[in-house]
Amino acid sequence: MFIFLKKIFYFFYREFKVNISGFHDILTNITFFFISIFIFIFSIGPQDKILSVMGVSILWTLLLLSSTLSLTKFYRDDFDTGNLIILHLNGFSFEFIAILKTISHFIYVQVPFIISIPIACVLINIPMEKVYSLLISFAIGSFILSCLGSISSSMNLLNKRNYLLGSVIVMILSIPVIIFSVGIINTEENFISLINVLFGILLIIFAINPWATGACLKIALQNN
């Protein structure tokens, strides 16, 4: 058990080192997010009421777009360098790799967004009482986006010509996530039930992710 945990710990250490050395990528994502917010603010104009009504939807749309920017590197580097095979030969099944990579994507890509949400809320004039529910909805929703990102980027490995296909799939599949996430923030009565629905979606996608991703990785390595 200790050996197993040690392997997992060093897998995350490896991901940490890779992500820290590629910190500019994380910074680029966050910069894209904030610049897009400013573009919305300038295009709508100094109308606080419109901004605070549309703010949550704008934030969610931008969070979705920003997190899709990081999808190209999800599995690509490990696939190209042969590390996927080496990890597989050393006791990491493709399904297990999918779970670990999804968690590390959440930690290193989505958590910086969660941290920057309060600042974004101030910029878009979202009332402070909504920030709390926005953080909860994004914490759950972003993990769903990481799972969807894992599936779509493993599908991208099967397709050598069109790297954007995966991002398109993520966007289509994330529509229900956005509907419920924005619903959570704008509702006053059904808060808990909508959180439960969003959490249910997370559990379903989290269960599907390893099998779907594992199968795609296996086929991609066979076709390589």
């Binding site: 040690k6 392997k7 060093y10 490896r14 080192k17 050395s21 190209d80």
Partner: peptide, 24 residues
Amino acid sequence: ADKTSSLKQLTINENIKIWKNIFL
């Protein structure tokens, strides 16, 4: 493999440390 599996962003020592621990 005929590819390079060492991580280019890391030093030789860091790569070795990761290999040592992941491969037990």
